[in-house]
């Protein structure tokens, strides 16, 4: 099912894409984290990661509800979009999340590092979006930011605990950095719809967040006795719908019920 078509005017489409990118990042990372439910290393951390998951899925809902409003206002298609149709009926090329959030959980080190790298970025992004001229984006960011602050603190503490922990936990963090670092460039790479959002005063220029992000990462890595990678990150594509193989598997699970039993209701 393609939710967008030529009936939506191009400027609204850019805005919808921008909002979907925000929502998709939250949904996919929330889904990944939810895979830990019942499998966390200790009960408290199982609860922590699933709480974060819930926060992220809550954010995704708010962004999707707003995207739906924009779609239905401007579209002439008879079948109206819903937050469910956005989550359950889009194919992977229509998802606009960054590649980082769809990477597999791996071990605890990998999950922690993914959360830290992403939450640090999300905190800077939402902070910037507080000043968005789009009222709805600004208020969702205001609300979500209070929770993201917890995510950053929690994940940063864990990066330090593992990096500056045992020989084994240190080695696993090194491996996690090796697995994930390549995907970080995309966070700061502007797509068309982000450029458009910046020009129209409702988006954040993510390219200028990179220095601050890097500084925070360096501070935490240093305290964690972890080396800061010097090689440039290069992988990108998620924001424009070109994903790694992993997203397909995520969607297969996420969308199973709606695909097998179309329009089924909970």
């Amino acid at each position: 099912m393609t939710l967008f078509n030529q009936h939506i005017n191009p400027s609204t489409l850019q805005r919808i894409n921008y909002v979907l990118n925000l929502g998709d990042n939250a949904l996919i990372l929330g889904h990944r984290n939810s895979e830990w439910c019942g499998h966390g290393p200790v009960l408290e951390q199982d609860i922590a990661i699933t709480n974060i998951s819930l926060d992220l899925i809550g954010q995704a809902r708010l962004f999707y509800q707003y995207a739906v409003e924009l779609m239905n206002e401007s579209s002439s298609i008879i079948e109206l979009a819903t937050e469910d149709s956005i989550a359950y009926l889009r194919d992977q090329s229509e998802y606009k999340n960054v590649l980082l959030v769809e990477q597999p959980n791996g071990d605890w080190a990998c999950t922690i590092l993914r959360q830290f790298l992403f939450s640090t970025y999300q905190q800077l992004l939402y902070n910037g979006l507080l000043k968005s001229s789009d009222q709805q984006i600004a208020v969702i960011s205001e609300k979500a930011l209070k929770e993201v602050n917890y995510h950053v603190k929690w994940s940063a503490e864990w990066v330090i605990r593992l990096g500056d922990g045992t020989e084994k936990s240190y080695q696993r963090m090194l491996q996690a950095i090796d697995n994930l670092w390549m995907y970080t460039a995309e966070l700061f790479d502007l797509t068309d719809y982000e450029n458009w959002a910046v020009q129209n005063d409702f988006g954040v220029d993510v390219s200028i967040l990179q220095n601050e992000w890097m500084k925070k990462v360096e501070d935490v890595f240093t305290e964690a006795t972890l080396p800061v990678p010097t090689q440039k990150a290069w992988q990108k594509g998620g924001k424009t719908g070109v994903h790694t193989e992993y997203l397909g598997y995520i969607l297969t699970e996420l969308q199973y019920m709606q695909r097998a039993y179309p329009n089924c209701i909970w």
Partner: peptide, 13 residues
């Protein structure tokens, strides 16, 4: 504090 996240989103342990 045992954990920043508790039995519900609003609670710490």
């Amino acid at each position: 504090r045992i954990s920043q996240f508790g039995s519900t989103a609003c609670k710490a342990l």
